[in-house]
């Protein structure tokens, strides 16, 4: 499976993502934001970081980069596009995903492990995933997902909520919500579920000597579903 990771000025999880993808057998390439086209890919990843220093709004400047038109075309043709953290923020700013990531409710930068519940498995990312709750890592200041009531209803009706913050037993409530996100939302899909944006970093959980291996399950599952 071929993948491309887009690098923006200020991306800082691009190389971690490269290491993770290659570890599981993706043929990964790095693509600069100023390029006009993306090499032939089965998956495009917008990595975490602080593109353009989070100026104006997180992800807003990157969402107007030269490369983005190719990303949008790829997404609209059904290609898999994964945005992690700042990548999720960029995807909402392009309009590929609904809503926006606002500043965390308690104005703090959060860096910790969290549990997320997989809410939908009828998609190429989570289909046949053995676990329902994954332990992943978050590190963000703007992860407080927000959208209008109408948008939320349509996300719920079409099963576009991908993952939600929860306890280790899958309980979703206010105490397991780190950042104030509406309905504990940690990640969502577009309508066709080929575009996934999520705040947690699977690429940080790919080795038992780091802090866990649930990220490995995530990447392996994408590969298994591609076969």
């Amino acid at each position: 499976m071929r993948s491309s990771v887009i690098i923006f000025p200020g991306s800082n999880c691009d190389r971690d993502m490269d290491v993770a993808l290659k570890k599981f057998g993706f043929k990964n390439q790095m693509v600069w934001h100023n390029d006009l086209s993306i090499p032939k890919s089965d998956l495009i990843v917008l990595p975490g970081g602080f593109s353009y220093g989070d100026y104006l709004r997180c992800g807003s400047i990157a969402s107007k980069s030269k490369i983005i038109k190719s990303v949008i075309d790829f997404a609209n043709s059904g290609g898999l596009v994964l945005g992690i953290c700042n990548g999720f923020q960029i995807l909402t700013e392009t309009g590929l995903l609904k809503g926006i990531l606002q500043q965390n409710k308690f104005l703090n930068f959060i860096c910790s492990n969290v549990f997320v519940k997989v809410k939908d498995k009828q998609n190429k990312y989570f289909k046949d995933l053995k676990k329902d709750v994954l332990e992943l890592h978050i590190a963000h200041n703007e992860g407080n997902y927000f959208c209008s009531d109408d948008e939320l209803k349509s996300l719920e009706d079409n099963n576009q909520i991908a993952v939600t913050y929860c306890g280790d037993d899958g309980t979703e409530n206010e105490t397991t919500n780190p950042n104030g996100a509406i309905k504990n939302i940690a990640g969502i899909f577009n309508n066709n579920k080929n575009v996934l944006g999520m705040m947690p970093h699977p690429e940080r959980m790919i080795d038992k000597y780091l802090s866990g291996e649930d990220g490995s399950l995530f990447f392996k599952n994408i590969l298994d579903n591609f076969k």
């Binding site: 104006l56 807003s60 107007k64 700013e93 809503g99 926006i100 927000f146």
Partner: peptide, 8 residues
């Protein structure tokens, strides 16, 4: 197109 995000 850029300065405001009309969602919020």
């Amino acid at each position: 197109k850029l300065l405001a995000n009309l969602v919020i």
